[in-house]
Design a protein around this nucleic acid. Sequence first.
DNA 1: CGTGCAGTTGAGCAAATTCAACGCTTGTGG
DNA 2: CCACAAGCGTTGAATTTGCTCAACTGCACG
Lengths: 252, 252
Amino acid sequence: MIESTHREHGGASVDERGDADLRQRINTRFLGQAAAGRLHAVANTRPYPLDPLAPPIELVGATMKFCANAEIYGEGEPAEYFYQVVTGSVRTFRVLRGGRRQISGFYLPDDLFGLEPGDEHSHSAEAIVDSRVVVMKRSTMLCLAARNDNIALQLCAVARRELARAQAHALLLFQSAQGRVAGFLLDMASRSPQGDTIELPMSRRDIADFLGLTIETVSRTLTSLESEATIALSNARRIVLRNRLALSQMNA
Amino acid sequence: MIESTHREHGGASVDERGDADLRQRINTRFLGQAAAGRLHAVANTRPYPLDPLAPPIELVGATMKFCANAEIYGEGEPAEYFYQVVTGSVRTFRVLRGGRRQISGFYLPDDLFGLEPGDEHSHSAEAIVDSRVVVMKRSTMLCLAARNDNIALQLCAVARRELARAQAHALLLFQSAQGRVAGFLLDMASRSPQGDTIELPMSRRDIADFLGLTIETVSRTLTSLESEATIALSNARRIVLRNRLALSQMNA
DNA sequence: CGTGCAGTTGAGCAAATTCAACGCTTGTGG
DNA sequence: CCACAAGCGTTGAATTTGCTCAACTGCACG
């Protein structure tokens, strides 16, 4: 009964094998979530049909589904879990004074996220498109880490990777609009399974809020790059890199 | 003989208790350093008199002295050590295409630095003013960590703090010139021992390269803040916060 | 066949950079 | 002691960049 309720209202579902505590938390979280309607995230938050297939549990945790724009966690909440994208994609962000939004990272399949410097989330996380996410209890991981040095060091490695990502982001923000877009495209391409073809899951607004630009500037920069034959825009969400060298020269 | 050589040419010295391996490395490093003369860091790199007093070793390591603008480590070098500021201050940075420089962080007494995501330094580090720095061998720390879970978790904590710092930096870079300067001042004040009075160790160029602005914009913004009575500039390197509220409103 | 949303394009404007000059302090040498 | 060069910081004017506001296109959905 509880499960059917959150399926109708929450935009998130948990596979059957999740433990009771986790399910409880998920229900309390997502019952109130659809009504939140935060900035830029009001549309398309509809119930999502429960996937009958249980996806493989990659680590200690349960797999959850989030439909597009559903909140995974919110800024200020206690950071009790780690997350890993299975399918789909996720954005993490903060909302600044004046309603502006800073997206701090995009997470694609296999990426880990939710590792916060403190005990509570300094960012919010939302699914960009319908996504499956593995949820791991942080205390369980730390408990394992206490018994297994290797896991502790792996956690360390995750933190360091996240640090590298944040530094790369700062590097992007140092540059001109063209440099930022070029760097973003190169990064996305390096994470894309299809080499030079990028399938963007996120909107222009997301890109703009990640790069610290306006959607107009992002759009103009992309069309300018296309007119120079540096990239090709098959459609708005599908970009092919035609001249990586030119892009890297704009970036660094 | 080796020691006298590096004292004359290197701008760095190591206290007597440093182990032989460390001394060897330091000598090879700093013999060639004075001639490097990198961007923005050519002036005032003279020999520094050896301090006869051995400062307390706070962690597993040796204390070294660096005179103003001396290089502590360089981008691309293997990251074999962690560092902690004892006195003075340190900047870490990368040099971008076109000769621009991105300062990624300022480190004041007690701050740890040199924790890199990979096995080699992704940034360079330089003393801003004459400084004393504790140097700890990374492998020693990791070895300790392997035997002591607590140390492993502490290393994790350091990484997470560094992550928070990088995220805060990205947040700064998202804002207007005024917002960046305001955020910078608030951060420096929060790390200052004297409350509202900030004694800046770094030049306008350093600040500009940290905030992604030009020195002119930094200067203009500061004088503008002073004319609004938000801050007072006793002299160029000494700033007093007069209206923290106004600053925080500009920042977030 | 509208309606609504995402994306693009254009014109005018504000913000920050560039280029240039100037003041202040400091250290050097006559 | 003064003259003077060198750095650092500030100020001004012109230019460039990216933003704001607005219109318009294309596509998906009902």
